[in-house]
Write a protein that binds this DNA or RNA. Structure first.
Lengths: 188, 188
DNA sequence: GAAGCTTGTTAACGACCGTTAACATCTGAC
DNA sequence: GTCAGATGTTAACGGTCGTTAACAAGCTTC
């Protein structure tokens, strides 16, 4: 019962609290007691909802990577490659600005995900990257593919820097800035 | 004797091994035993050279931030603002490509540095950012400063993405790509 | 060659961690 | 009203961690 994918309000609360704690203190820096305490519970209560600490992280990363890819596939389908790139940028930026903790955990904690979920997350991440690469190949057909792939990774680094820069910019201003920078970086 | 800043070959070895381990597994994911073992020693041997685990991290981050800033100050002094920006980009990129582990630790583990070194690192980091901001203000005087500062942080995210993208690009090709992307992103 | 400093070792400490067991309470179904 | 399931608690487990203590071996100096 604590095993499979079963949406319950408690599970969602735990995942939200875990995202915040894992982002702020890291997976190894967060104890089960901390995690329960953030919800007004004791540590062992979490075992009613998850098989263990690693299972919380695993479900979190699987969910993030699939959300990014699923919507990425949709956005990349635009017939105009330039519009598709804009749509991908908008999607990734809005996700990063809405979920800074998730972006941080997704970026840092993959190595702590147990198999087989780690392999699954890697596969889904790769599929998401390939959506970007495919759009850019349409946009700049003369560019060698390894260079495009490296550029996409670097662009993610740019867009994902959001959580760390506690800047004085409003959210729309930040979104616009990241879009312009990402676009310029990819099309340089 | 184990206290102050005293360069010894052993200390440098420990710092190098710690950079690698902290980057790969995180500060909390690395034990003193792991760290000693990486050098063919036992854990407690490290206490002959450092006051404790946190002291290793603290010295590492203070050193990184000061190296970045010191050379940053030099590069930013070029009379031509555009040349200064190129020089800053070249510096940061070469540092990141030469020291991927240091860049990773510097980016992720500041919260685990004890006071007062954490405050010191923050101050030096801020000074490094200000070198970039000052150059960009000369280059684009009409741009509001908060936007410039946010752009610099985003650019660091781009340049620091190096360690995660184990790409098929050669080092010169990667350096050239990052330079072009960073320059385009900042001047968009 | 004795003394002392440096740099290691092993053994042991107290604390904390992830997890499990045993038990309590509440809720809904019949 | 009772039973069963879901969801919480406290207590206890084995393991690991950072750190310290006690001791040993090698080098340098006089």
């Amino acid at each position: 019962m604590t095993d499979a994918r079963q949406a319950s309000p408690r599970r969602a609360e735990i995942l939200a609290a875990a995202a915040d704690l894992f982002a702020r203190r890291g997976f190894h820096g967060t104890s089960i007691g901390d995690l329960g305490g953030a919800l007004g519970l004791t540590g062992p209560a979490l075992y009613r909802h998850f098989r263990g600490k690693e299972a919380v992280l695993a479900e979190m990363l699987v969910d993030i990577s699939e959300r990014l890819r699923d919507e990425g596939v949709r956005r990349a389908a635009a017939s105009d490659a330039s519009a598709a790139l804009d749509a991908l940028l908008d999607w990734h930026i809005s996700f990063a600005l809405d979920n800074p903790a998730l972006i941080t955990v997704h970026e840092r904690e993959l190595d702590n995900v147990p198999e087989p979920q780690r392999h699954q997350v890697r596969r889904v991440q790769r599929a998401y990257v390939e959506e970007w690469v495919a759009v850019l190949r349409r946009l700049r057909p003369d560019e060698p593919e390894p260079r495009i792939r490296a550029a996409v990774h670097a662009c993610f680094g740019l867009l994902n820097s959001t959580p760390y820069s506690a800047t004085g910019l409003s959210r729309p201003a930040m979104a616009e800035l990241l879009h312009a920078m990402g676009r310029a970086a990819l099309c340089c």
